[in-house]
Nucleic acid binder design. Structure first.
Lengths: 192, 192
DNA sequence: CAGACTAATGGCACTCAGCGCCAAAGGTCA
DNA sequence: TGACCTTTGGCGCTGAGTGCCATTAGTCTG
């Protein structure tokens, strides 16, 4: 490797940051605190994350690519809606080992106002993945109304499922997601 | 009226702000700029709006109360989903005179990254109005899964409709909203 | 009319996120 | 050893947001 070697990693920073966030709260933790905990200059943190709000999201971009592939793998025989449904569930399957970290991460993201706000920008990319898939399946342009709506609705159901999952100590994320998708049927008059 | 009279109003500030935003862009307009345009101290702006990001939303809280009432007025014979559908449409009906301002406002909100992010906090209250209504209609608690999902989905459809409306110079907002709601049926297998 | 009272104002000083700039550090390679 | 390259991190700045408090401009009472 050419040039000065990095003195830290994304993982290092996240670890230090999550500890501090849990300890003092997100807003009360300054970037200076984090930099100090990592043993690095404040300026360097910005070389790893564009903003403080981005730290809890970690390497989200990379995981988005996985979501895209997951959807691509869904069988074409499955109706679009069910394919998205299954794709979302598949994408949100985690090993028990990782699950508790994921829960902590999502709890921070979904319950900290600053992060709730910032997350809208991340969700946009997530919706785009669904919109692209639906566009491909239906032959519409990805920017046209139907795929865009599909993206919004998919996100809506996922967020609702996450909230429900986080509020219930013992629930399963997969089940929460399934429930959201089936509730949509309920709402649309398959009874209630 | 007791005490020193206010030297400005929300309307004054919004007018000055929107002009500047249109002229220089949102990010490039400082609160100092706005304060100067209004002829008021920077500190005073914060007495009218909690943050720069709140200015474009105007008096959103008050309009939420109207949304709540609109939903309450929906006939009980209407299935919940349709009641929400009609309520959202009703709430987003504007006179031609106001419509162009509304369009400008929503264009700013939905196309400025900082504001997209911030808006998530406003949407939360909007979703709650739907959740409360659905809770009342179905007998669930407002915090339980079904009403929460309804809130998310309602917002999803409204946002999709707004995006579509803004991207088409000549479209009608009411029609865009109707289209979103019917697209949901399409997605769920009433064909496509 | 004078003086008490009240609420809005706005200046000041401060914290913190974020960014541009640039010299220094710490590696690799010929 | 010295050229080369990339990361680091310090410095200084801008701008949002906040707490504090004296000032201002009204109303109300005697």
């Amino acid at each position: 490797m050419i040039g000065r070697p990095p003195v830290t990693t994304h993982a290092d920073i996240e670890a230090a940051a999550f500890t501090l966030f849990a300890h003092k709260g997100f807003a009360e933790t300054t970037l200076e605190d984090i930099a100090q905990a990592v043993g690095v200059g404040r300026r360097t943190i910005f070389r790893y994350y564009p903003s403080k709000n981005d730290i809890p999201w970690g390497r989200f971009d990379e995981s988005l690519a996985g979501f895209r592939e997951t959807l691509q793998r869904m069988p074409a025989e499955l109706p679009v809606f069910d394919a998205v449904h299954q794709g979302v569930i598949e994408f949100n399957r985690f090993d028990d080992a990782v699950l508790s970290q994921h829960r902590e991460r999502m709890s921070l993201i979904l319950r900290t106002p600053e992060l709730q706000a910032h997350s809208a920008l991340r969700y946009e990319q997530w919706r785009k993945v669904i919109a692209d898939y639906v566009a491909m399946r239906t032959g519409h342009y990805a920017a046209s109304s139907l795929p865009v709506t599909a993206g919004h609705v998919g996100l809506a159901l996922a967020l609702s499922a996450y909230e429900s999952w986080l509020s219930d100590e013992n629930g399963s994320l997969t089940e929460s997601l399934s429930r959201s998708f089936s509730e949509l049927g309920t709402l649309m008059g398959r009874h209630g």
